[in-house]
Design a protein around this nucleic acid. Structure first.
Length: 528
RNA sequence: CGCAGGGUAGAGCAGUUGGCAGCUCAUCGGGCCCAUAACCCGAAGGUCGGAGGUUCAAGUCCUUCCCCUGCAACCA
């Protein structure tokens, strides 16, 4: 039992979210639920990063004020999280006063202690686009704007910079002292080779080219650079530098395990700039930044222009929340990129949820009704070699589940539950209850088989309930399992069931007709 | 010669320290009858991107080449 703080990235509401965003947040939710089940004092934060030039421009294009524009999108995002039953404890918006105050205070402090200084930013400027570009962004010898293709010219503007160079060595020392700070390790190498070894440049932390941001108090012409603004959400949400910083003191403390989940596109900001900002503020650093893969579409990254975006709502509506949550945690190895295909989505449902898991409950329940009038027989120990083996598979599965969850191998953790389910299905074949039922002298053996099956289902449901919210509850209800045996306290026990009255219920996951459903999902992906 | 990751059975992927090439699905054959056309067993299917090298032994180590995908610092 300890304290656990988990965050998702705060998403950028420049357009509607798709299933790729849902992926990261759902994983965070599963991890958060696991820690709560374990008894850890858990705090789970998500939110939105609402400033920046792109939002200002998109809002103008839509004929709205930036605030109206983000309000609308944020409402949609919050609705999506509600639909996915994301169990976040707070939702931080960078346009909230509680956040903006913190950013201004931090900026002032950094300025006063000499970490931020006023300098000049030089880059390639495209006048029509009103944008600065870097050497690598402009194209060709004529330095063409990557946006509009017109030539850019060198330009300078006044800007504030953060002295990253001052902290670079300290950051390397921190990496060395905390080898597990960045996961997977390849991301760390990428950062070190690309940014730290060549020498960390000072970061420009203010802008004058647009106004939709948090104003620099000391120099109102400037707004704070989006990342200095955004990253601070992880502590502003806890009440850092506010009148009531109790939560901050409790959560951002040395005895809390602090985990940031991020996509690989924002790794740099979380493993270089964020730790350095924290160092400058004299605060502890997170325990781990976990870089997850992106959920890709067959033809590359999900994007609106490619018309390969999948909206999660119709999927949830048609297949249920649990199916979508299960797909998201199961289909991609947590940490590497995955691919969304309609075929895999339907397959995952039919094979794992319908055939293996749902069907195991259905056949078990059918037999308990048939042979024991719907009452789970009492535990008599591991009566046969088959019972014994099932128990040992169960124990192994539980251990593997816990170990994998503790090390953030979510996909593997879930897979180990399904190993147990598969073994239980096999156990039915091998113990042949239908044959035992014909032999009065085998009544005890038959009872033991039923008890073991019911208990295996109970254990699997306890593990699965961090992913499958509705169907595990239905399973407990159908088996008549009491609340006290639905938690981790009794997870590894085999002797708790006996005397429960089953309730007849519908199959948890009715089998889908693959072809029809694949067609349906494809129709959702068509560009419109 | 920017940096990083990847190319293994029809599809999607595992393969730690070099030691008979594995998993899931699909395919084919069989079994069972408790169950959701489900479940269980068995079989077929790969010159591990190309070429060269080290070794008794290479998917694994070295060299070189080809192809894909990210990142490349002020777009998040």
């Amino acid at each position: 039992m300890g304290k656990f703080y988990i965050t998702t990235p705060i998403y950028y509401p420049s357009a509607k979210l798709h299933i790729g965003h849902a992926y990261c947040t759902t994983l965070a939710d599963v991890i958060a639920r696991y820690h709560r089940e374990k008894g850890d004092e858990t705090y789970f934060l998500t939110g939105t990063d609402e400033h920046g030039e792109k939002i200002q421009k998109n809002a103008e294009a839509a004929g709205k004020t930036p605030q109206e524009f983000v309000d609308e999108i944020v409402t949609g995002i919050q609705k999506l999280w509600k639909t996915l039953r994301i169990s976040n404890d707070d939702y931080i918006r960078t346009t909230e006063k509680r956040h903006m105050d913190v950013v201004q205070k931090v900026f002032t402090r950094m300025l006063n202690q000499g970490d931020i200084y006023l300098g000049e930013y030089e880059g390639w400027y495209c006048t029509p686009c009103e944008s600065f570009w870097t050497d690598t962004q402009v194209q060709g010898d004529d330095h063409l704007c990557p946006d509009c293709g017109r030539p850019c010219h060198k330009a300078k503007e006044e800007a504030y910079f953060f002295k990253m160079s001052k902290y670079a060595d300290k950051l390397m020392d921190f990496y060395k002292a905390h080898p597990n700070f960045i996961t997977p390790e390849s991301r760390k190498n990428e950062m070190i080779k690309n940014f730290l070894e060549p020498g960390l440049e000072d970061l420009c932390v203010s802008r004058t080219s647009f106004t939709w941001g948090i104003q620099v108090k000391e120099n109102p012409r400037h707004v704070v650079y989006v990342w200095l603004d955004a990253l601070l959400n992880y502590i502003s949400a806890l009440g850092y530098l506010s009148n009531n910083d109790e939560l901050f003191k409790k959560i951002w403390s040395d005895d809390t395990y602090i985990l940031h989940l991020v996509g690989n596109d924002i790794t740099r900001f979380h493993v270089i700039y964020w730790p350095i900002f924290l160092m400058a503020l004299g605060l502890r650093l997170p325990d781990k930044v976990f870089v997850h893969g992106l959920l890709m579409m067959k033809d590359g990254k999900m994007s609106k222009s490619k018309g390969n975006v999948v909206d999660p709502y119709p999927l949830i509506e048609r297949y249920g929340l649990d199916t979508v949550r299960y797909y998201l945690v199961r289909e991609t190895i947590f940490g590497s990129d995955g691919t969304f295909t309609p075929e895999q989505f339907v397959e995952r449902y039919n094979i794992d949820l319908a055939n293996d898991f749902g069907n195991l409950l259905n056949r078990t329940s059918g037999m308990i009704f048939k042979y024991f009038d719907g009452v789970i027989p009492a535990y008599q120990g591991a009566l046969t070699a088959l019972d014994k083996e099932l128990e040992s598979v169960g124990k192994a599965s539980i251990n593997s589940f816990k170990t994998n969850m503790d090390t953030l191998h979510v996909t593997e953790a879930v897979a180990s539950i399904f190993d147990y389910i598969a073994r239980a299905n096999k156990y039915v074949e091998e113990s042949k209850p239908w044959a035992l039922a014909k032999d009065e002298s085998k009544k005890d053996e038959l009872a033991s088989v039923m008890n073991h099956l019911a208990n295996a289902l109970r254990q699997c449901a306890i593990m699965l309930k961090i992913v499958l919210l509705d169907s595990t509850e239905k399973l407990f209800a159908q088996l008549g399992i009491e609340k006290e045996y639905q938690g981790y306290d009794s997870l590894d026990r085999f002797d708790v069931l006996g005397g429960e009255h089953l309730v007849k219920g519908d199959p948890l996951f009715p089998r889908l007709k693959s072809d029809e459903e694949i067609e349906f999902i494809k129709s959702l992906m068509v560009k419109h």
